[in-house]
Design a protein around this nucleic acid. Structure first.
Lengths: 350, 350
DNA sequence: CTGAAAGCGCTAACAG
DNA sequence: CTGTTAGCGCTTTCAG
């Protein structure tokens, strides 16, 4: 009755020990590349392994070893290129360190995300990476208290001792708005992201700051609250363009919403950037490929994933003793073709 | 010296047994929700668990249990929305079955993908899902011979007993071309995908078949060999439009290349679809959001991921005894705005 | 250079 | 209802 469901994965270290006529600790040694093994013995063992098709049982190995060489990655879903870019950075760093990546998608078990996070990860992984975490406060304490290694990505830390990496969201949005102002725009709309995300709030703040610093008064009517998805970009731009005094330029809180704004502009028979300038945020790959190429704020997404992974790894492996902190990577304005000076020309000759 | 690197994950079943004053098998029982346990005992144990912050060690559990509840997923990279869609389907099915997903990206260890596939997976996972596998022949035998469960996604099986799911690639491309022909086009260009991919070859074949079936002779000059990336779509369309007798419509082997074609058309001051019709393949989310909305062949990507996962799971859990086979899911023409009848009007008045 | 033996943390009979 | 006892497959002393 034991072995109830194991049809494969049968050949163990013992089988090959028997086959090679050695003790199984010797087999373990050749597997782990120990130095002092008679070449002949080593060969006999290797032969037996290939012959029997041996594959190490990682669970057993890790049970005794203590470390699992697995890191857990928690994301919301796989829908955006934004996530894809970050994951690519993570994946690279994880591969380099010869760790494996366990993927968890939050939509799976919405309830009690906190316990979920802690237990799920601890049982199998050595550390946890979380992209755009939401109810962080709920489990931050537990995580900390248990000393379980974790790093948050795109979480705007309030205190400096939360291991997290994000980009300079406020500064980025500031730069976006400032760019538009520099081009001559004075009436700039803003499409915000989902305000439960820290980054969304920071970007809005950056926009406001840029306005104020340039002597332009903030008008809440020019802010539309979106949700980071394309359709809300469309809706936002559409709403903004319906204003009595529509803006001459729009800052979107991410590229995808900027694409939505493109459509809204187009659907009104207007043109980007001649009639209305648009700038995005993220610089996802498509930003360069749409028409017109999108002027946007580049977030070093891959680098963020990569850095977060390296931070996590150094924690797990105790490479550094110092407390990990909050790191903000710089954003950068990428001026392409979607923003230009407002033409004094005809706009909304209503 | 043991415990060399375990700072956390310390409290075990024994600790909580001691704390609760019971044997550790009892603890195991409450963890696994056995029926006959005195409520009082159960409570003492539960209390101890929460107090000490117990988290089950999955490795130990799985070592004895035999099954790991982990399925491995092998992909090339995370770059395309195409992959994202498939992974979403997989993720959902995996979550429903309460399995975990281990992610492997091939770019990681290019050498000896065959051994990699077999050993990596067998050590940790109960089964393997591979998206768009390449050198399948190399490891198909090993996999089969070892009886290790696996399902290939978007692999065009030559024999029917390879567990795989893909879409009706040939038929899809056939439909795309036929649609264009029906619209009145007689001179249709084709931008192929990377021909090492089975699906790319099948699509090319579908295009040819449609031509032949409609009495149009195939001209190899009208076929450009791309690689599924956007830039090759641009290059392909550009090349096709440079022909002495340029096509009036172009079939791209995937949406991303179709987007590249859009750009090429635009860069020549031409319009889609008035001057040149374009149809894609895949129906990735963006297809509906670009301008003009792309007419394309929808591949049920999520469903493909989902089905493959279910097939794999049924193999792992021996739900079905019959041999798993090759399944092709139907594609479907999604007519949007990028293809119309060729205007008799001016085109290339050179 | 290699074998024997002791567990890693947990589940699953087997006896009460 | 609960304790005892074997291992799962592997790594790692500890002795040769």
């Amino acid at each position: 009755m034991k072995n109830r469901s194991r049809k494969f994965s049968n050949v163990t270290i013992k089988d090959i020990a028997r086959e090679a006529g050695v003790s199984y600790s010797t087999v373990s040694r050749v597997i782990n590349n120990f130095e002092y093994i008679k070449p002949e013995t080593r060969e006999r063992v290797t032969d037996a392994m290939t012959e029997l098709g041996y594959v190490a049982n990682q669970h057993a190995r890790r049970l005794v070893g203590g470390r699992s060489q697995v890191i857990g990655l928690l994301i919301h879903a796989f829908d955006s290129p934004y996530i894809g870019q970050i994951v690519q950075g993570i994946d690279e760093a994880v591969a380099e360190a010869e760790y494996d990546l366990m993927l968890y998608t939050t939509h799976r078990r919405k309830t009690r995300e906190s316990t979920f996070v802690v237990s799920i990860a601890r049982g199998l992984a050595d550390g946890l990476l979380m992209v755009l975490p939401r109810d962080v406060d709920t489990y931050l304490d537990t995580l900390n208290q248990q000393g379980f290694p974790f790093v948050l990505i795109d979480y705007v830390a309030t205190s400096n001792d939360v291991p997290a990496v994000s980009a300079t969201n406020r500064q980025g949005a500031y730069d976006a708005a400032a760019h538009l102002i520099e081009l001559g725009h004075r009436h700039i709309g803003f499409i915000a992201g989902d305000m439960v995300a820290d980054s969304a709030r920071e970007r809005l703040q950056g926009y406001k700051d840029a306005l104020v610093d340039n002597g332009i008064s903030f008008e809440s009517a020019l802010v539309y609250e979106g949700d980071f998805f394309q359709s809300s970009g469309f809706a936002g731009a559409d709403a903004l363009l319906s204003l009595d005094a529509p803006p001459t330029a729009i800052c979107a809180s991410n590229d995808v919403m900027a694409f939505g704004a493109y459509e809204a502009v187009r659907s009104r028979g207007l043109r980007t950037p001649q009639d209305i300038s648009i700038v995005g945020f993220d610089d996802i790959p498509q930003a360069a490929q749409v028409h017109p190429p999108l002027t946007t704020i580049r977030q070093p997404l891959q680098e963020m994933g990569r850095l977060a992974t390296q931070m996590l790894l150094s924690w797990i492996e105790e490479t550094v003793e110092e407390q990990l902190g909050y790191v903000q990577l710089p954003t950068e304005l990428v001026a392409r073709d979607s923003a230009c000076s407002p033409t004094e020309s005809v706009f909304y000759r209503s």
